[in-house]
């Protein structure tokens, strides 16, 4: 699989997939998509990049150890739930705010935060698995 073509396009492909994964994550509440799918796409992107250009370059590119990303994701998801407790509704109840940013109404919610947490857990855990296994070649 280590052809020149693959190695040349892999970084671009990985970046595209990573961008797409964020898009899928964000639209997930109203269209097909969401944290699980987005996370899977991003993890695949990292896996492809790793196969093509070696695991060390992936590790440099994402700065953090992938399992730390997963831990951050879990933290984010739990925090989203705790927000609800702080304003006095049951754990994990969705809270919505609609701030005006540059004249556009932006719907933000703890659900998005939660879904982002899911995204990070899936990316982190699966990329960690894939990279660990790739590294052993």
């Amino acid at each position: 699989m280590n052809t020149v073509i693959f190695r040349t396009i892999a970084p671009y492909l990985a970046v595209l997939m990573a961008l797409f994964s964020v898009f899928v994550l964000l639209r997930g509440h109203n269209e097909p998509g969401g944290g699980f799918i987005g996370g899977l796409i991003a993890a695949s992107a990292l896996a492809i990049y790793g196969i093509a250009n070696g695991v060390p370059s992936v590790r440099r590119a994402i700065i953090f150890h992938p399992i730390h990303l997963a831990g951050f994701g879990l933290f984010l998801a739990v925090s989203a739930g705790i927000f609800s407790i702080l304003i006095g509704v049951p754990f994990l109840t969705g809270i919505w705010i609609y701030p005006q940013v540059f004249g556009i109404e932006l719907p933000l919610s703890t659900l998005l935060m939660f879904d982002t947490g899911v995204y990070f857990v899936v990316v982190g855990a699966l990329a960690s698995i894939a990279l660990t296994l790739e590294e052993r070649d």
């Binding site: 969401g34 699980f36 855990a125």
Partner: peptide, 10 residues
């Protein structure tokens, strides 16, 4: 199933 797929993969 969606969550089950990811978990069974892990």
């Amino acid at each position: 199933i969606l969550t089950a797929i990811v978990i069974s993969f892990s």
